[in-house]
Simulated scan of single mutants.
Amino acid sequence: MSKIVVVAAQKGGVGKTSTVRNLSYSLAELGQHVLAVDFDPQFNLTTCFGINDPEKLEYTTATLMTDMLEDRELPPKKDFILSIGKVDLIPSNIQLSVIEANLRLEMGSEHLFPNLLESLRGDYDYIIVDTCPSLGTLTISALTAADEVMIPVNPQLLAVMGLQELTKTILKIKRRLNPKIKFGGILFTMCDKRTNLYKEISSQVDTAYRSGMRIFDSRIPTTVKVGEANGLGLSVLEYDKKSPAGLAYMELAKEVLA
């Protein structure tokens, strides 16, 4: 059974896009057929796959959503899905911000993106979606499509405060739009286990959420290797097979499969 996993966070800088990039690669390494979807107008995931001029792409999430808004037939899958290494990608660009404004005016628009992903579900084991660092229209649409939500959190106070707001939003979506959505789990990123802040925040999150939500055992360490790999359009494991962050993402993929 294929699964749609949305990676979401209310604030930026928590490793959300890096998690989509590296989890997608790690799952593919473990034999899964994976589609990564960039549903963020900042198109960071697209850049992390080595596409430096996304405005020149003929097809993106923006063009697909435009077709759906205007009730046009979608292009063939082979035209809008890019195969990059072991992972397939639907890229994004800045035009998606225009679509976000249009979605607010369209009746039932929150179901358009779920309909797009449902049409692709049969082709993949996992569809992993990168979202905006906010709780706007695009993120709501992505959560409406999700089977599970993975929430990356770095050990900072503001990230934990954002976690509270995101969980409330997900519960509202479950009641009103998507009864099948589940909490896939909380993932700690950018961790320095030696610091008192990490220990304190980790303990707070464990106390507050462990009884009702999975907290992944895998902890992604802070390292410049992730940023360097992103800059080269690679997963961190492709960039450095011995990187602790890359190995941690592989352990995360095994947890997801388990």
Rank of each mutant, 00 (worst) to 15 (best):
S109T: 13
H111Q: 13
H111C: 04
L112A: 11
L116W: 13
S119I: 09
L120R: 11
L120C: 14
G122C: 08
Y124L: 12
Y126F: 15
D130T: 04
C132N: 10
C132T: 11
P133A: 03
I140R: 14
L143P: 07
T144K: 08
T144G: 14
A145Y: 04
E148N: 09
V149A: 10
I151K: 03
V153L: 13
N154W: 09
P155H: 11
Q156I: 10
A159F: 10
G162D: 14
Q164M: 13
Q164K: 12
Q164A: 12
E165W: 01
E165T: 13
L166H: 06
T167C: 05
T169I: 03
L171A: 06
K172R: 09
K172A: 02
K174H: 02
R175D: 08
N178K: 04
N178L: 05
N178E: 02
I186A: 11
M190Y: 03
N196W: 13
L197W: 08
Y198D: 11
E200A: 14
I201C: 15
S202G: 15
S203F: 15
S203E: 14
Q204A: 14
D206Q: 15
A208P: 05
Y209V: 11
G212N: 13
G212K: 10
G212H: 05
D217C: 02
S218V: 01
R219T: 04
P221T: 00
T223C: 02
K225I: 01
G227V: 02
A229K: 02
N230T: 07
G231L: 10
G231M: 12
G233I: 05
G233A: 02
S235V: 00
L237S: 03
Y239I: 03
D240F: 04
K242G: 10
S243M: 07
P244Y: 05
G246P: 05
L247Q: 06
L247S: 02
A248D: 03
A248K: 03
Y249I: 01
M250E: 03
E251H: 03
L252T: 04
L252F: 10
A253Q: 08
A253M: 05
K254M: 10
K254H: 07
